[in-house]
């Protein structure tokens, strides 16, 4: 399925940002400068396409630190393949989202 996915520049940038270690929605917004109304719907689409996966932080750990549990995103294997192709297509992607 991943081979059939054609990414827009915005989606590729969000993938690259997650790959660079920014794993929360607001982090992605802060790095890319994209508005929340673009980032979150894109995250949902990337997740339903199988390019990223989300996971809730363990409630117990968050509770111990007296903070709410956070949902974080990571690239799936398919996502990494697609990102690899996207980076070839958009060479400046890596500079736009530097490693965390």
């Amino acid at each position: 399925m991943a081979e059939e996915v054609h990414l827009t520049h915005t989606a590729a940038l969000i993938l690259q940002t997650i790959s660079a270690g920014y794993r929360y929605g607001f982090d992605v917004m802060a790095v890319t400068g994209l508005p929340s109304g673009t980032v979150y719907p894109a995250l949902r689409r990337l997740e339903s396409s199988g390019l990223i996966a989300s996971k809730w932080e363990k409630e117990k750990e968050a509770f111990a630190d007296q903070r709410p549990a956070r949902k974080y995103y990571r690239l799936s294997a398919a996502g990494e393949q697609v990102l690899g192709r996207a980076v070839k297509r958009y060479p400046l992607l890596e500079q736009m989202a530097p490693r965390k």
Binding site: F26, P35, S36, P68
Partner: peptide, 28 residues
């Protein structure tokens, strides 16, 4: 979304910027 807002407040994101971010929740 509520967790993200909590962390944004903790990290000192200005309230007007936070409000702008939250409007994205509607389109999300």
């Amino acid at each position: 979304w509520e967790a993200e807002i909590w962390y944004a407040r903790r990290d000192g994101v200005p309230s007007n910027q936070l409000r702008r971010w939250c409007w994205g929740a509607v389109s999300d």
